[in-house]
Amino acid sequence: MPVHRPGPIRPRRLFLVALLLTAFSLLHPAAASAAEVPEVPETPETTATPARGSAHMGMGVVAHDGQDGLPAGTRASQAEGVDVASYQGNVSWPTLWNSGVRWAYTKASEGTYYRNPYFSQQYTGSYDVGMIRGAYHFATPDTSSGATQADYFVDSGGGWYGDGRTLPGTLDIEWNPYGDACFGKSQSAMVTWIRDFLNQYKARTGRHAVIYTATNWWTQCTGNYGGFSANPLWIARYASTAGTLPAGWSTYTMWQYTSSGPTVGDHDRFNGALDRVQALAGG
């Protein structure tokens, strides 16, 4: 059977093809442009990572747990508090006091490489208007040991004073904004890191540090370890209730309930009236 072989494309045909393509591009410039420059989907490599030192309480809570509703009807029996960090700058503490806030925590440090430049204004300012105040440390377990970071925290203003108006320091342990959620650690290694921090803080100050965390993170990164119940729990959950607590705690001491309160800072409620806040400060 003879095989048909196509002949060469004639110049006239080439001219007609070129003419048709030119006409299409003039009539549909957007389609032509899209064909020339394909859209590149966003990848993790093109997503900006925050600068070291910029982390703060609850930074990953909205992203991982969401924010759904606010509590109602409990403020009279639960003292209102706020927590602040450097991104709030100089805080108007009289405004917060007049709104009903009676206790506050200020970020003091992160890892062993960052101290809050606004710490003095925020930590001392809250005290000066009459609030009961405390300091917190944003943990980065992938950069140094727990004991080393506890020392850095205490040396950065996170200690405790028996003046009746200073709360024990808080370990902020939550999603890593700079990389792997669990800072590259196994669940058992994370528990060891936390224990080392807590033991060193108690050795330096005589107080059990508060643990700030979210139940989902705690379950994922510690295996829902239940052995730290001697430490007060500060639970982060942006909803109408505090929800299920991490293992080992039957109740929370503090609850961060929103990142979008009516005034500056994340807003929190103490599990009790002002006298319970004073009791924790007094040791």
Rank of each mutant, 00 (worst) to 15 (best):
D172F: 08
S99G: 11
R10E: 13
D266Q: 08
A23K: 02
T124L: 12
Y257A: 01
N199Y: 06
G226I: 03
A72H: 15
N176Q: 09
W97S: 00
G73R: 01
S260L: 04
W97D: 02
G66T: 01
Q278T: 15
P6T: 07
Q200G: 06
T106Y: 01
G158Q: 13
A18V: 01
F153D: 07
E42F: 13
P50T: 01
P71F: 05
D65E: 15
H137P: 00
Q88E: 13
A55G: 05
A139D: 06
P44T: 07
C182S: 04
P41W: 05
S188I: 12
G81D: 02
T192L: 07
G282T: 14
G261E: 10
A139K: 02
Y161R: 12
K107W: 09
Q88L: 06
R269N: 12
P50D: 00
G73N: 00
Q200A: 15
G69Y: 14
A236F: 06
S259D: 06
S54T: 15
V82R: 07
Y113V: 09
E45A: 15
W255R: 03
Y87T: 05
L26G: 13
T124Y: 10
R195Q: 15
M131S: 01
D83T: 04
L19E: 06
Y257I: 02
A139V: 02
W97T: 03
D266A: 10
A76D: 09
L70I: 04
L19D: 03
H56G: 08
A35N: 11
Q88D: 08
A147T: 04
T22E: 11
I9M: 10
G111D: 01
W218T: 03
F153E: 07
D68L: 12
T43E: 02
P8W: 14
A108F: 11
R269K: 09
C182H: 02
N90W: 04
Y123P: 06
G162M: 10
Y114T: 11
A30C: 07
T192M: 03
A104W: 12
S186Q: 09
P177R: 00
S259C: 02
E110G: 03
S260N: 14
A35W: 12
S259A: 03
G58V: 06
E110N: 12
V210P: 02
W160K: 04
L70T: 15
R207I: 11
F119L: 13
G226R: 09
Q149Y: 00
V62M: 07
D266K: 07
G162P: 15
L26F: 15
V62C: 04
N271S: 07
L19G: 14
P262S: 07
R207T: 01
A147P: 00
A30G: 10
L26P: 03
T222D: 14
A273L: 06
P6W: 11
R13C: 08
T46M: 12
S126V: 14
G164Y: 05
A63L: 04
I173D: 02
L21I: 13
